[in-house]
Amino acid sequence: MSQSPENLVEQVKKTAKNLDQPPLDKWHPELSGDMDLRISRDGQWVHKGKPLGREAIVKLFSTILRREDDEQYYLVTPVEKWRIQVEDTPLLAHSLTVEGSGEQQILKLTTNVGETLEIGKEHPLEVDRYEDSGQPRPIVRVRHGVDARLVTAAYYDLVENVVEQTINGKPVLGVFSYGNFYKIGSGG
């Protein structure tokens, strides 16, 4: 089998009825090897040193990407599984919109592949910190272990919706979406 992007696209088209969400949880082929594909911190997909030029391929690849228990990322089809490199998160969240208000508001993010995610049980928000800089690292779970990192503008939009809650007697900063509270930092 070939590890070319076009070959993987053809395999997925032949076997997946729903190209928006292929049945990745049902595909478990043996490892085919390492593909010379890297997703840079700025969200660029680079194959053999050159950016993938077709947006449709990047969008499709985002649906067949999963992170496994070994914390590695793989492009998976029914018959092939290629390990790729990811510098930070495979996807980026560029914009945030808010519907409603208060504890029942719904926070929505749009990713760099055009997917809209509603922060909630299926797509929880988590804010960690980068070890080297201490800067916030806000991410939202997409699916199959894959996360999208909020870019700076989306994070600032998120911060505009921060409220303070008392949890275990301590002030905590966070946001509500679908009635769930997502911690962003300490209050006080």
Rank of each mutant, 00 (worst) to 15 (best):
K59Y: 04
A56E: 13
I64V: 15
A56P: 03
Q85V: 14
I57D: 15
E55T: 13
I57E: 15
L60F: 04
Y74W: 11
E55D: 14
T77G: 09
V86K: 03
V58I: 15
P78K: 00
P78H: 00
R54H: 13
R83I: 00
L65I: 01
D69K: 03
S62Q: 03
E68H: 12
Y74F: 15
L60G: 03
E55P: 11
L65Q: 06
W82N: 04
D88P: 09
F61I: 08
P78E: 06
R83Y: 08
T63R: 15
K59D: 00
R67Q: 15
Q85I: 12
K81I: 06
K81Q: 12
I57W: 12
G53T: 10
I84Y: 04
L65R: 07
Q85A: 11
K59H: 02
I84R: 01
L60E: 00
R83P: 05
R54S: 09
F61Q: 08
D69G: 09
V79F: 12
D69M: 06
I64W: 06
E71Y: 13
S62Y: 05
L60V: 03
D70I: 10
D69Y: 05
R54F: 13
I64N: 04
I84W: 03
V79G: 07
D70F: 09
S62L: 10
V58A: 09
L60W: 09
K59A: 09
K81P: 10
E80K: 08
Q85T: 15
E80G: 02
Q85S: 14
V79E: 14
E71W: 12
D88K: 13
V76L: 03
I84M: 00
E68Q: 11
E87C: 00
P78L: 00
I84A: 02
D70V: 09
V79C: 05
R67T: 09
L60P: 07
T63H: 13
V76A: 05
L65T: 06
D88T: 13
Q85N: 10
R66G: 01
T63M: 11
D88V: 05
V86Q: 07
E80W: 04
E55H: 13
G53E: 11
D70T: 10
V86P: 08
V79I: 11
I64P: 02
D69R: 02
V58L: 09
F61V: 09
R66Q: 13
V58T: 12
L75A: 06
I64Y: 03
E80I: 10
R67M: 14
D69F: 07
R67I: 11
K81Y: 05
V79P: 02
E71L: 14
R83M: 12
R66K: 14
G53D: 00
Q85H: 10
P78M: 02
V86H: 02
K81D: 05
E87A: 01
A56H: 15
V86R: 04
L75H: 01
T77R: 03
R54M: 11
R67V: 13
E71D: 15
Y73V: 01
E68V: 08
V58G: 05
Y74E: 03
K81L: 04
Q72E: 14
V86M: 04
E87V: 01
D88C: 03
E55L: 13
P78S: 01
E55W: 14
R67L: 04
E71I: 10
E80H: 11
R83N: 10
V86C: 07
T77I: 08
I84S: 01
L75M: 01
